[in-house]
């Protein structure tokens, strides 16, 4: 099934493996990345080492997760400054295996149109189905996609929310397999809650989806936050696993976009421009 990855773009990226707090200390753990079996181990000082056979791999510990790179890291891991804010609750909320490519999972994360149909009664509800015009830009300096002014009616926007709101979203795509979402905080109007999706490409058509929730919320327990996020993931999983093909087609004529998919169109073009091969079906030249 999984042949070793030869895509230099994917080999040069940092990839998440596991929530650091979930790793039992001083025992070998095993996972797969880009079709390759890896071993990792956490020492008593909470430092994680990652090995490909006996070869030690570069490690970054950030945002609650351990990250590694199979090749030479092209650049440091992207910034997520909110993680360091002292009053935030940072919860590694979920790690879920999904039989889909990483780029399909990113597109699903960027998509508001499915809320009333897939996350019914939580992130959306019929008849409030409209995706209003929003802005998308590709920031060339930071090499990331930013979608702003995303507004959607949500009956229960977060674990700490009671009652419906017009939720305000900002999406960042700072990494081909990661996306960060900023949304109106139900308990503090001046702040934004952060939900980040870090995808571990197990192989071209399988991911482990890791979620970081970073919120201003003094009420909900970690368990509440995890259950909320895991409910959302469990609703997405059967949809994603029924997408054909599992890899994301970059040929513009493979699927039919609508205006609501503006950010996905920019994302597909961005992947194309990067020359990314892993987890996509490249467009015919």
């Amino acid at each position: 099934m999984s042949t070793p990855c030869s895509d230099p773009v994917a080999l040069g990226l940092w990839h998440p493996l596991a929530a650091i707090e979930d790793i039992p200390p001083s025992s070998d753990q095993h996972t797969r990345l880009l079709g390759q079996a890896l071993r990792y181990r956490k020492d008593a000082g909470n430092q994680v080492a990652v090995f490909d056979g006996d070869r030690p791999l570069p490690v970054t510990q950030a945002y609650g997760y351990v990250w590694t790179c199979l090749g030479t890291p092209a650049r440091p891991l992207f910034d997520l400054p909110e993680y360091a804010e002292p009053d935030r609750r940072n919860v590694c909320a979920a790690t879920v295996g999904v039989r889909v490519s990483a780029p399909r999972a990113v597109e699903n994360f960027l998509d508001m149109g499915h809320f009333p149909f897939v996350h019914t009664g939580i992130l959306g509800v019929e008849p409030h189905t409209e995706v209003r015009e929003y802005q998308v830009e590709l920031n060339e300096d930071k090499d990331e996609i930013l979608a702003t002014e995303c507004i959607f009616y949500q009956p229960q926007a977060a674990a700490g929310a009671s009652g419906g709101i017009m939720a305000d979203y900002i999406y960042r795509v700072p990494h081909p397999y990661c996306s960060v979402l900023y949304k109106s905080c139900p308990t503090d109007e001046s702040r934004l809650d952060v939900i980040a999706l870090f995808l571990q490409p197990v192989d071209e058509e399988t991911v482990r989806a890791h979620a970081l929730v970073s919120v201003i919320d003094t009420q909900s327990s970690d368990l509440d936050i995890r259950l909320f996020q895991q409910t959302i993931f469990s609703q997405d999983k059967p949809i994603l696993e029924n997408q054909l093909p599992k890899r994301l087609p970059l040929d513009p004529r493979a699927e039919t976009p609508i205006r609501a998919d503006k950010v996905a169109i920019v994302y597909r073009r961005w992947l194309r421009a990067k020359g990314l091969q892993y987890g996509v079906i490249p467009a015919a030249a």
């Binding site: 149909f117 019929e126 949809i239 997408q243």
Partner: peptide
């Protein structure tokens, strides 16, 4: 074709309302 042409989701997991078939993903 077992594939919604919007995002490729299988229509066999869709909803047959007797007159129309609804895609589960975006309705």
């Amino acid at each position: 074709e077992n594939r919604c042409l919007h995002r490729g989701v299988r229509l066999s997991i869709g909803i047959n309302d007797g007159t129309e078939l609804l895609c589960q993903y975006h309705g």
